[in-house]
Nucleic acid binder design. Structure first.
Lengths: 196, 196
DNA sequence: CCGCGGAAGCAAATATTTGTGCTTACGATG
DNA sequence: CATCGTAAGCACAAATATTTGCTTCCGCGG
């Protein structure tokens, strides 16, 4: 029998591979090195064979999208605070906390990066986007169920979501304290009575 | 001696090459094909040898940054309308008009794409960003000179600039009419008296 | 217990991108 | 008009990324 002494070739299960690769993506993206993000690098970092990555995901975009979706859907406890304002504040605070970590910033950048290339499918982009806005939509629906009158999604996008994204994209530091409160106040204060 | 009969090798001047390559970048970026954006593709599209591109720009990031800077600085007439609100409205309207064209969207995406990779240089990012915000800064200064009290740059970023960027990134259509007015109204209406 | 399908690993082939040496054209300058 | 510096083009080489064929292992149903 062939001595497998140094052939420590432990084959990991699909689940382990998936997790390891996802983690590698986030790691590489958070790393401040100017290293490029490509499949061989990811595979190496994850300790899996690059062919496995190619076969499973096919393209970097698909991998990014999958990573983002998986990670983001894992971190949305999204507890009900009892009021629209409370829920929005909780969301904004969680977002701030998230993008203060380099991993959080990496995820946001991954969202952005995974968007443009899949340009040939506008429907796909929309779908991706819907997923990102899902928590917001939930908050709106709960508010509506309570009889509150939540601002339209577009307004929440403009006044609450967009500021976070643009700061991550351009690498701008968040204002010190009270930023979530500031944004939510603006959002709820300005368009209060203005319906459609 | 090699016969150069059909060697219709017209060598274009540096300026022509520059322009052709810039145009190719924008074209490829606007094209709805899922084609990847890389230097060989750009060079081919521009009809120049790819080595010229490599030698002149060195990297895709540098090329993107150069393209963006050149194009954006060309399209900023930015005339003085006589009031802060007027200037902001003009800026917002121009932005809307710009990102209604696929070329305009391409430019914005190029801005975003050219950002992340230069991650090792936070100062470089900041500088890039400053350039993007230059017109806004001008508007603020003119307003200040008039005795008006313009909102701080951060607020303009959050309420005016960010919404445009996020819509381009996620490929969301702009609201029908009155969007510039809506954003500017929110901006000037909400934070009017609120100082720091 | 035995075979089967799925997926990971390995290795090698292929394709693509990036970089280099050299030649040649253009324009500026004397 | 001669010369020189710059930058484009070509051919080819090196480096990287992507794909493919095959083997091996794992879990599952017969």
């Amino acid at each position: 029998m062939p001595q497998k002494q140094e052939s420590e070739r432990v084959r990991r299960s699909p689940e382990q591979v998936r997790a390891a690769v996802h983690q590698a993506v986030v790691d590489l993206l958070s790393d401040p090195q100017g290293e490029e993000l490509n499949i061989p690098a990811i595979a190496q970092r994850a300790g899996v064979n690059h062919t496995s990555v190619y076969r499973r995901w096919g393209s970097l975009d698909a991998l990014l999208a999958d990573t983002v979706t998986t990670r983001l859907e894992r971190n949305s406890p999204l507890n009900d605070t009892g009021s629209l304002r409370g829920d929005l504040l909780a969301w904004a605070r969680a977002s701030v906390a998230s993008i203060r970590t380099s991993e959080g910033r990496a995820l946001v950048r991954a969202v952005v990066l995974s968007m443009p290339t899949g340009a040939q499918a506008p429907g796909e982009r929309a779908q991706q986007f819907q997923r990102r806005m899902h928590s917001i939509e939930q908050i709106r629906q709960r508010a509506a169920a309570r009889g509150e009158d939540p601002p339209p999604p577009e307004q929440i996008l403009d006044q609450l979501v967009a500021p976070f994204y643009i700061r991550v994209i351009f690498g701008i530091d968040l204002p010190a304290d009270g930023y979530p409160e500031l944004l939510v106040d603006r959002l709820l204060g300005s368009g209060e009575g203005s319906g459609s």
